[in-house]
């Protein structure tokens, strides 16, 4: 079998805030390998470094030390714009607070990443409509976030994340603001995209029940991984 490089690989990654004596480690020598198609859950108490790790994988933040490989390519030293290119082409984000544009229809919210990718208006509309159909919101295309329930808003956010057909979907506590029934629905949806579209999912959560949907669980404590597998 040929040695195929991992989709994501963190090698001895550290993240330090502050200088010298006031320096605090958010991450300390973290090593992670994620293969294509995996569903990963990252768990840990608050301040354990799980969000920092997620932000580094999501190219929203860069490590202070160590290296970050994306499909075998070292992307550690990329600048802001280069990281933006990675985000718009390969990554999708779902946040705890949904982070949709207010007073903007679901359709326009989902279209947004396509606008930045330079997709033409007609095609853009078609793709966005299809993505919203996939998350089961075909009948609320023109609703604004204020007119949607929390669960529906998170579905719009998922549609926005997958509309660009990303390699990886990063979800930061996607069920944090939802009740357990809606939470399970969202998790089923993520699982579906993971299985059917082979989208790699990396999810931060602190709910054991949600983590059970994942193939692998990384547990963080004080900036280090304390437990790797399920």
């Amino acid at each position: 079998m040929k040695t195929k490089s991992a989709l994501i690989e963190l090698r001895d990654v550290s993240k330090v805030y502050g200088h010298m004596s006031t320096a605090t480690y958010a991450l300390k020598n973290v090593n992670i390998k994620i293969q294509r198609g995996e569903f990963i859950a990252i768990m840990g108490p608050s301040g354990s470094g799980k969000s920092t790790c997620m932000n580094i994988i999501g190219c929203l933040d860069s490590p202070s030390d160590g290296s970050f490989l994306f499909e075998g390519l070292n992307v550690t030293g990329l600048n802001r714009n280069q990281r933006a290119v990675l985000r718009r082409n390969y990554l999708g984000f779902v946040f705890q607070g949904f982070n949709l544009l207010g007073r903007t229809s679901a359709l326009e919210n989902v279209e947004l990443p396509l606008i930045y990718k330079g997709v033409k208006a007609l095609e853009r509309k078609e793709m966005a409509t299809k993505a919203l159909e996939m998350v089961g919101l075909a009948d609320v295309l023109s609703h604004t976030p204020g007119e949607l329930s929390g669960g529906q808003q998170q579905r719009v956010a998922i549609a926005r994340a997958i509309v660009t057909q990303p390699l990886i979907l990063l979800a930061d506590e996607p069920t944090g603001n939802l009740d357990s029934k809606r939470s399970r629905e969202i998790m089923e949806l993520l699982k579906k995209f993971n299985k059917e579209k082979n989208i790699t999912i990396i999810m931060v959560t602190h709910e054991e029940e949600m983590a059970l949907y994942a193939d692998k669980i990384f547990r963080f404590k004080d900036g280090m991984i304390v437990e790797g597998e399920k």
Binding site: A84, L112, P113, K117, R160
Partner: peptide, 13 residues
């Protein structure tokens, strides 16, 4: 926050 959303989904500065 809106600017943050746009940047996160891959908009250039």
């Amino acid at each position: 926050r809106e600017i943050g959303i746009r940047l996160a989904i891959g908009a250039f500065e």
